[in-house]
Computed example of a mutant assay.
Amino acid sequence: MATTGLTRGMGSFFKECEHPESRWSRCPHEYKIRYRNAAGRQAEESGFVTQDKAKARLAEVYHARKNSPQSQRKAERVQKYGGMNFSGYVAEWLKGQRDLGPASVRNLDSLLRIHLLPAFGSRRMGTFDHKVVEAFIQDMERNGVGLATQTNAFISLKAILLDAHRLGLYEDSPLAGVKAPQYDPRRAVIPSVSQLQEIRDAGDDAFRLVTDLMSGCGLRNGEAYAVNINNIVADDVYRVTEQVNQATWSYARLKHRKVGEYRDVPLPARTRRSIEWYADTYGTVDGYLLRNPTDIGRVMPHYVIDRKWRRIKKSGLADIPEGMVLYGLRHFFASNCLSNGIPVTDVAEWMGHRSIDITFGIYRHLMPGSISRAAQLLDLGLAA
């Protein structure tokens, strides 16, 4: 079956027969047409005796679609936004992002300022396609941009371009076929048990508490800084209710959760004792353990623990794996869970991941399962 196209957007006519196109005018088979209707869905019609009648019907459908109110509104949007440069479009787009928390706004501003606007600031919105996006990712790779930053920059660009696509600026999504930056699990540097102990012992009491919370309960940095004695809801359960916001230096809702939402995580006995010891030794303020060293009326800022971490790395007092960052303490929690057979669904929930795909993508190399291992276990079950 051959097809013949017309002006872009009009569709095509064809015959479903064994004859080549050069003989269509003489063969007895009817013509068919294929086009996209007003809803954008592909449609077909048949029963056209001549090529001229098939073309005439395609032209009729095309002009009806072009003159519909919906198409006219789309044309107006394309005219308004297609020639707008990226920086101007982003300024309008940002006004609609009212659900972003302060930390997300700060991160987005950084990505725009450092990566997206320098690359696309003056580019007209109507000129984006998959080649432009692919080139942007390749440039970040060549320039040695960290993979986490590459991923976040791509996600931000994707959100902006999908918004433009919904307005009708592109016939085909400029993201179609683009391979997003891929997470390399080797970058999740995880300390061994002995290395974790050395790291813990090299810090002061506040740093040791943070180490125990991140490695024992899987808390994020900011969640550990907001530790509260009243959140021990059972001997083996800690309730994560808030975090210290890096941008505002205040307590804020959890990532990916609304105000008032929480998640319960396992509380190892060692971590519980660490919390209780610190509270007995230093006291609390409304139940909070970690406070600003210069003013206990304020929250513990991120930079305090970050500085302690850098001093430990510089001191050489602990055997720290090459490339490990403070977040590696949280990676240890995931590794400990998965290597002991705890389901990845539970680990994803405890770590507060938005999707199990995130957990699986980062930590799948830590999961002990394999086809051979599964076959052995299934065989044992069948033999029982």
Rank of each mutant, 00 (worst) to 15 (best):
G11D: 02
F13K: 06
H19M: 11
S22V: 14
S22N: 10
W24C: 01
S25D: 15
Y35R: 05
G40P: 00
Q42Y: 13
E45D: 15
V49W: 04
A56M: 10
A56Q: 12
R57H: 02
H63V: 11
K66A: 10
R73D: 10
K74L: 13
K80T: 13
G83Q: 09
N85W: 00
S87H: 07
W93I: 00
L100R: 14
S104H: 10
N107F: 06
L117Y: 08
L117M: 15
P118V: 08
F128D: 02
D129P: 06
H130L: 10
K131A: 14
A135F: 08
F136N: 02
I137C: 11
Q138F: 11
Q138H: 12
R142K: 14
N143S: 14
N143Y: 09
A148S: 14
A148M: 12
Q150E: 12
T151P: 00
T151G: 11
N152D: 09
F154P: 00
I155V: 09
L161V: 07
P174D: 04
R186C: 08
R187E: 15
I190C: 12
S192P: 05
L196T: 00
Q197P: 01
E198Y: 02
D204F: 10
V210F: 03
L219K: 00
A224V: 05
Y225R: 03
A226G: 03
A226Y: 00
V240F: 01
T241K: 08
E242M: 09
E242C: 13
A247I: 06
R253D: 04
L254A: 00
R263F: 12
P266R: 08
S274P: 11
A279L: 08
A279I: 05
T284V: 13
L290H: 01
L290E: 01
D295Y: 05
D295Q: 11
V299S: 04
H302F: 06
I305C: 05
R307C: 10
W309D: 02
R310Q: 13
I312L: 04
L317M: 07
E322L: 07
G323A: 03
V325K: 02
F333M: 05
A334L: 07
C337D: 01
C337A: 13
V347Y: 03
H353N: 06
S355Y: 09
F360K: 10
Y363S: 05
R364T: 07
A383W: 04
A384T: 03
